[in-house]
Design a protein around this nucleic acid. Structure first.
Lengths: 251, 251
DNA sequence: CGCCCACTTGATTAATATCAAATACTGTGG
DNA sequence: CCACAGTATTTGATATTAATCAAGTGGGCG
């Protein structure tokens, strides 16, 4: 739960009470092994999943098997906050690495967001950031070259990991395979391999399948045309917290 | 406003009062000429835009000018319902064709969704469908071939237009240029041209820059691996309307 | 008419996929 | 600890897809 609070506090400042409320949101974590689905396309989920540790992905497949990863979930990320409105999932969520998740029921979410408008707003912010990331991916897929795209992905993961204190010395644990990167970037595995070599040769990154190191963070960002604005972090926190909460009637 | 109600009633059934409330949401429409921005990246918008007529796009650009279209707005679509949480727009919205928009203020939206939970739920549904479309685009960009991608785009526009009664005899007005299609699909203009020829040769579509005709809708959908499920239309309307609204306390 | 666009066509090049094989790594059973 | 199987990564060669470059064609419109 720590990671969630750490993440949301990039957007707002909580009171102790709010922090306690967030911490009591869910039950004990459940472990999910790599490649196992957490929610499957067609399901009608009854709760929301909070990633406590590890990497999960959102993905979607074509009827002939081609598969595309749509986004990454890191510790502190919540999958599909507003899923209750739609009847059926139109995509799946799976563990990419060993993952610890906590399930939060719809009623729990409702109760807490009703009571604490600031939490509601923070959760909305998290959702909007996720959508923004998805737009940036679309831009990547359509306009960035293979190498830029991969570099941009690494920048994103690095930044997001940093927000939840998962980075140390320009290193972040990223235990994934080149096929995963292929499904993320829409490239073939062979090409992913060659792009990685290119990024290494440029002295921008080191990546051994377990740990990603940004050898030259600024160089990488420049190369990837990375602009962290789309992550909406630390966007004038003061201004936002003094704003009237959207649903001020509760509490 | 008609189109909005028509669209939302694919999800729920409104009372007369709710319909009236929706109809009174905004002031008179404003015309925007083609290629003109409606909201620009970096702006802090104070209202929400309802497209009354024409096509608008969401787009995003790299610092070196490469531009990607992220989505289409048709009549009845609302741009960025939850934009108030974030300080700055991370992308732009522009008219693609001549467009009529109505601006709806934040307070108007809040007042009406507070009072009519069913409307709130319906607007949420619309937002979630938009996100789903964005995910499907990511799948298209990553996994579909150029021709499949273009075909899929046409299927989507066709279906969405149909929901707001904009289709007649397998024809839909689609006044856009091949450069627009290029920025949508991430292809070069020349290649777009060749892909269009291919789709025409296959007898799937006719497209003259003004009107799109689906000569063989089923064939096109099969070719594009199109599955309308992601549009979440007519998803067991009965079930949803008998469900307890999420924020039942208002009213 | 003549100019400006958009569209089209052809030729060439660059990016990326595919195919095939070799190498490295990981975990397991003996 | 080793042998081995299975999987992941790397390399090389070739094919395909799509971009770029360059030069038409064609339509609308002042």
């Amino acid at each position: 739960m720590d990671a969630l609070i750490r993440k949301l506090e990039h957007f707002t400042q909580f009171t102790d009470e709010e922090r306690k409320a967030l911490a009591s949101l869910s039950d004990l974590p459940v472990m999910v092994s790599p490649r196992q689905d957490i929610i499957r396309e067609g399901d009608n989920p009854t709760g929301v999943n909070l990633i406590v540790e590890g990497y999960a992905i959102r993905y979607k497949a074509l009827s002939d098997g081609r598969r595309q990863i749509l986004g990454y979930f890191l510790a502190g990320d919540i999958c599909d906050l507003r899923v209750f409105v739609l009847k059926r999932m139109d995509h799946s969520i799976a563990a990419l690495t060993p993952v610890a998740v906590r399930v939060i029921s719809e009623s729990r979410i409702m109760a807490i967001t009703d009571r604490y408008p600031r939490i509601m707003r923070a959760l909305w912010w998290a959702t909007l950031v996720e959508e923004s990331i998805s737009r940036e991916w679309l831009l990547s897929m359509g306009q960035r070259t293979a190498a830029e795209r991969m570099a941009h992905l690494f920048c994103e993961i690095y930044h997001r990991a940093r927000f939840v204190d998962l980075v140390e010395g320009h290193k972040v644990a990223l235990p994934l395979r080149q096929t995963d990167l292929a499904e993320t970037t829409g490239l073939s595995v062979v090409h992913v391999n060659r792009v990685l070599q290119d990024l290494r040769k440029r002295g921008l990154i080191a990546f051994d399948g377990q740990v990603l190191t940004l050898l030259d963070p600024d160089g990488l960002e420049e190369f990837a045309l990375f602009d962290p604005l789309y992550l909406h972090m630390d966007e004038d926190k003061a201004m936002i917290t003094t704003t009237q909460p959207i649903t001020a009637r509760a509490g």
